[in-house]
């Protein structure tokens, strides 16, 4: 049985972002990361950049990176599907070391999922050669640090799939 202790709480993610000196969170809200919004707004060290469509996020992040900042992208897996040309042109082709936090809509560890958003996301990331990590509980949050280190070392985007989230 799932308990509140065994899920992911937004402060654990935000602590990881701060630990890795992230400056900007470029995002479009999704249900998996809903409870993070207020905390992000309240966090002075993180500048929130809301967008109208997910494909904008990689381009804005590219500009921030060019200008010396360290952004992450926070969108749903459905938004990754919409963002293909941005990931190609402004992620992979320019060697942007971008960590993409991706709401894993449809994810379940307990059996087949009817949601194609969940079924397609990992194969698509792998097709692009983008490695990804899954976080489901607070104990997993340090995988964000692993992703940040890997993005810098490989100079390419890395995905972090947010499998669950609970309120503050």
């Amino acid at each position: 049985m799932t308990t509140y202790d065994s899920v992911l709480h937004p402060p654990a993610i935000i602590a990881e972002l701060k630990k890795n000196n992230i400056t900007h969170v470029v995002w479009l809200p999704d249900s998996e990361t809903n409870f993070m919004y207020q905390l992000l707004n309240d966090e002075d060290s993180l500048d929130l950049v809301p967008v109208c469509r997910e494909g904008e996020t990689m381009a804005i992040a590219a500009g921030l990176w060019v200008g010396g900042k360290k952004p992450v992208v926070l969108i749903q897996n459905t938004g990754i599907f919409e963002s293909g040309d941005s990931i190609r042109g402004l992620g992979l082709d320019i060697n942007q070391p971008l960590v993409m936090l991706i709401g894993y809509r449809g994810w379940t560890r307990r059996g087949p999922t009817p949601d194609s958003a969940a079924r397609f996301i990992e194969p698509i990331l792998h097709t692009w050669g983008i490695n990804c990590y899954l976080i489901e509980t607070d104990d997993d949050a340090d995988r964000i640090s692993i992703a940040c280190e890997e993005a810098e070392r490989t100079q390419k985007p890395v995905g972090v799939l947010v499998g669950t989230e609970f309120g503050v």
Partner: peptide
């Protein structure tokens, strides 16, 4: 000069990021 020939439609997003950073 930071030209953008791929990711069509995203030039202003790229510029926005630079403007926020600088």
């Amino acid at each position: 000069d930071l030209p953008l020939s791929g990711a069509m439609g995203k030039a202003s997003n790229l510029g926005l990021g630079i403007a926020l950073a600088q």
